[in-house]
């Protein structure tokens, strides 16, 4: 076990994977801040689950595990799922939560069926496809990590450029429209950011749990601050921290999937924030009731 550990630590691949999980966690936390404030947590979970069939279709089309193709497939079905949710809300009497529930289960179900079919019938090398469900950082090769790293940096930069505009478009969309701020366009950008981060994150964290890495860091950060820039930065740091710690454990303990491990870490951080957060933590309220 300790041998395994030291080999991993010294390997360049491991260092790459840790860097990838750090940047992925940071990007998730930062983008998640706006997802949380826009009250789109559930939608982001649906987007993640809807990415799974795309992975299967991407594999079946070329009969090989070509990551860019798989991720392109994931992007398309994720967007399709989101589109269906809007469609259901608009044209039926269903509420948003029912529409989201339907899409999550249908797309995830189709995804599982496709992956099972591939496992049993496909001829190409399909090892590791199942890892898109719960995530497995150790399955990443250098090229995958580089793709994740570069994409995460780009997504964070876009978020930072749009920071002020996201803020007003989420806080007061009517006032923003009055100022001539392109609110619908910004909503579209935020949606693409969610799809982007979900898609690059699924191999590491998995479709089932990546939404937790989007939502729990900002939720935790909110207990420590009332200022949006600090909240977004802190959320990024907490996301990065849980990404790194979770990946470390998962990579050093054989067969432990990464997604659940990361979620355990971020959940612990959330619990600490809930209890001891300096702005809204339960203990603060006990010490100085407002």
């Amino acid at each position: 076990m300790s041998d395994y550990f030291s080999i991993f630590l010294s390997s360049a691949n491991f260092r790459w994977v840790i860097t990838g999980s750090l940047l992925l966690g940071f990007a998730c936390g930062m983008i998640g801040t706006f997802v949380l404030l826009k009250k789109q947590s559930l939608i982001s979970d649906a987007m993640a689950h809807a990415a799974l069939p795309g992975v299967g279709i991407g594999f079946l089309l070329f009969n090989e595990k070509n990551l860019p193709v798989l991720l392109l497939g994931a992007t398309l079905t994720s967007l399709l799922g989101t589109y269906f949710i809007q469609l259901i809300i608009k044209h039926s009497k269903l509420d948003a939560d029912a529409a989201i529930g339907v899409i999550i289960s249908v797309f995830f179900g189709v995804g599982i069926v496709l992956l099972t079919f591939i496992q049993q019938h496909a001829t190409g090398n399909h090892a590791g496809l199942k890892e898109f469900i719960f995530g497995q950082a150790a399955s990443l090769v250098n090229r995958d990590v580089q793709l994740i790293t570069v994409s995460a940096i780009v997504l964070v930069l876009i978020t930072m450029v749009c920071f002020k505009e996201f803020k007003i478009a989420i806080f007061d969309p009517d006032f923003a429209k009055g100022l001539g701020i392109p609110v619908s366009f910004l909503n579209g950008v935020l949606m693409l950011l969610i799809v982007g981060i979900v898609v690059i994150g699924i191999q590491m964290v998995g479709v089932v749990l990546i939404a937790a890495l989007l939502i729990t860091p900002p939720l935790s950060a909110r207990y420590w601050t009332d200022e949006l820039p600090i909240m977004a930065g802190l959320s990024g740091v907490l996301g990065a921290l849980s990404g790194v710690i979770g990946t470390w454990f998962s990579a050093t303990i054989p067969n432990l999937p990464t997604g659940p491990m990361i979620v355990l870490v971020i959940s612990a951080i959330f619990l600490i924030s809930l209890l001891f957060g300096s702005k809204r933590g339960i203990m603060m309220k006990v010490v100085q009731p407002s």
Binding site: K164, K167, F171, D172, L179, E227
Partner: peptide, 28 residues
């Protein structure tokens, strides 16, 4: 019509009135 629990302070809200003059994607 807005969420007053939003993480921001009074001055930031007033600054929003200047967003057009500040220019899009620029800082105050």
């Amino acid at each position: 019509e807005v969420d007053w629990d939003f993480p921001t302070n009074a001055r930031d809200i007033v600054l929003m009135g200047r967003y057009r003059k500040i220019g899009f994607f620029k800082r105050a």
